[in-house]
Amino acid sequence: PEDLERKVRELQKNGVSPEQIEKILRRDGVDEREVQELVKKVS
Rank of each mutant, 00 (worst) to 15 (best):
P1S: 12
P1E: 09
P1M: 14
E2Y: 13
E2S: 14
D3Y: 09
D3H: 07
D3F: 08
L4T: 04
E5F: 10
E5H: 07
E5D: 05
E5P: 03
R6E: 10
R6V: 07
R6H: 09
R6F: 09
K7R: 13
K7M: 10
V8M: 03
V8N: 00
V8W: 06
R9V: 05
R9G: 03
R9F: 09
E10C: 12
E10S: 04
E10T: 06
E10A: 08
E10Q: 10
L11G: 00
L11N: 00
Q12G: 04
Q12P: 00
K13S: 09
K13H: 07
K13F: 07
K13V: 06
N14Q: 14
N14E: 09
N14C: 10
G15K: 03
G15W: 01
G15Q: 02
V16A: 12
V16T: 06
V16F: 15
V16Q: 04
S17E: 05
P18G: 04
P18R: 14
E19M: 07
E19R: 06
Q20L: 09
Q20N: 10
Q20I: 09
I21F: 01
I21W: 02
E22S: 08
K23I: 14
K23V: 12
I24N: 01
I24F: 04
I24A: 04
I24H: 02
L25A: 00
L25Q: 00
L25F: 02
L25R: 00
R26V: 12
R26M: 12
R26P: 01
R26T: 07
R27P: 02
D28H: 13
D28A: 13
G29N: 04
V30L: 14
D31E: 08
D31G: 10
D31A: 10
D31T: 11
E32H: 04
E32R: 03
R33D: 10
R33G: 07
R33H: 09
R33M: 11
R33E: 10
E34I: 15
E34L: 15
E34G: 03
E34D: 10
E34R: 14
V35L: 14
Q36V: 09
Q36N: 06
Q36H: 09
E37A: 12
E37C: 07
E37G: 04
E37S: 07
L38W: 14
V39Y: 04
V39T: 04
V39L: 15
V39I: 15
V39F: 10
K40F: 12
K40M: 10
K41V: 05
V42N: 05
V42K: 03
S43V: 14
S43H: 11
S43G: 09
